[in-house]
Amino acid sequence: MRLSSVLNTLENARQADDLQFVLSEIRRGYGFAHATLLVVRAGISPLPYPFFCTTYPPAWTDIYLRRNYFEIDPVIEISRTGFLPVDWHALRAQSLKGKAFLRDARGFGVGRHGLTMPVRGANGERSLFSVTSAANRSDWRRLRDASIWELQVLSHYLHDKAVLVSGLRASGARDMLSRRERECLQLIARGEIPKQIAARLQISEGTIRLYLRLARRKLGARTLYQAVARASFLEIIDV
């Protein structure tokens, strides 16, 4: 129920500022202290960290940006090699600056615990979706374990929406796929199978399957069902 509610709110987001409301809903709905989305890299932007949205206290956000804590935040190191969710208890700040950073963060009410989901987008973008908690250790573990699957799902949808509404995708999501790839995926979404699509478009079934494989790869989807869901969310096809 929480997941579907957040996804509905996210689907209606039309500009970057709307994502602030989405993060606030995640925070309230799941019982976290804070939620943050950071786009670490986007293909068309020459700048590092081109998009940042958070529910952290404004005083902490101001210090973070002013002191360029991106450079010493141990969470950001996850984006360089990681694919799986990381509990912040597994992080180790090696430098004195890194350790001081973590102390400062706790002092500003960021939370004692955190979980970060690295995301790699279809066009090579990378982002980090993080949630934090002020609960005790045992309550944090229960909260983390109960919500981690839904948070992983949300991380991919948040990433896609962020790079879309912030203009970080060069030619818009629709241009990710060719006309034929969109057409085939649209017909799959309407319930047709490759053989029927081939007859409709008067091309071979093998060619249809090739278009669908290419569409899946570009959308970063493992199955056709995932490809249809992602294409629908990005408004590439109508469902």
Score class of each variant (00 low, 15 high):
27 R>Q: 15
226 Q>R: 14
238 D>V: 11
156 H>Y: 12
55 T>E: 05
75 V>F: 01
52 F>C: 01
12 N>I: 09
170 A>Y: 11
100 A>D: 14
45 S>Q: 06
7 L>E: 04
7 L>Q: 10
138 S>T: 15
199 A>M: 14
140 W>Q: 02
146 A>C: 02
56 Y>A: 12
50 P>V: 09
52 F>W: 13
239 V>H: 11
69 Y>C: 11
101 F>V: 04
84 L>G: 01
233 F>C: 05
231 A>H: 05
110 V>A: 02
208 I>H: 04
99 K>P: 00
169 R>W: 11
123 N>H: 06
100 A>P: 00
148 I>P: 00
232 S>C: 15
54 T>F: 07
28 R>Q: 10
55 T>N: 05
5 S>L: 14
128 L>D: 04
100 A>Q: 15
220 G>E: 08
7 L>G: 06
152 Q>F: 00
27 R>N: 05
33 A>Y: 04
127 S>T: 03
210 L>Q: 07
180 R>M: 12
41 R>D: 04
156 H>R: 15
61 T>K: 13
102 L>T: 13
73 D>T: 11
230 R>P: 08
68 N>P: 00
61 T>S: 13
51 F>M: 08
135 A>H: 11
91 L>D: 06
167 G>P: 10
86 V>L: 12
73 D>L: 07
13 A>K: 03
130 S>Q: 08
221 A>Q: 08
29 G>N: 06
179 R>E: 13
97 K>F: 09
229 A>G: 02
213 R>A: 10
155 S>P: 02
116 T>G: 02
137 R>F: 04
16 A>V: 12
94 Q>F: 07
120 R>Q: 09
117 M>P: 00
137 R>M: 05
152 Q>V: 11
232 S>T: 15
173 A>P: 07
65 L>I: 13
107 G>A: 08
59 A>V: 14
169 R>K: 07
108 F>S: 06
158 L>Y: 04
231 A>I: 08
69 Y>W: 12
217 R>I: 03
232 S>Q: 13
35 A>L: 06
220 G>K: 08
134 A>R: 15
76 I>W: 00
63 I>S: 08
144 R>I: 01
79 S>T: 07
142 R>E: 11
95 S>F: 01
183 E>N: 03
10 L>Q: 03
34 H>A: 13
65 L>W: 04
49 Y>E: 02
85 P>D: 03
63 I>G: 01
194 P>T: 09
88 W>L: 02
147 S>F: 01
130 S>E: 07
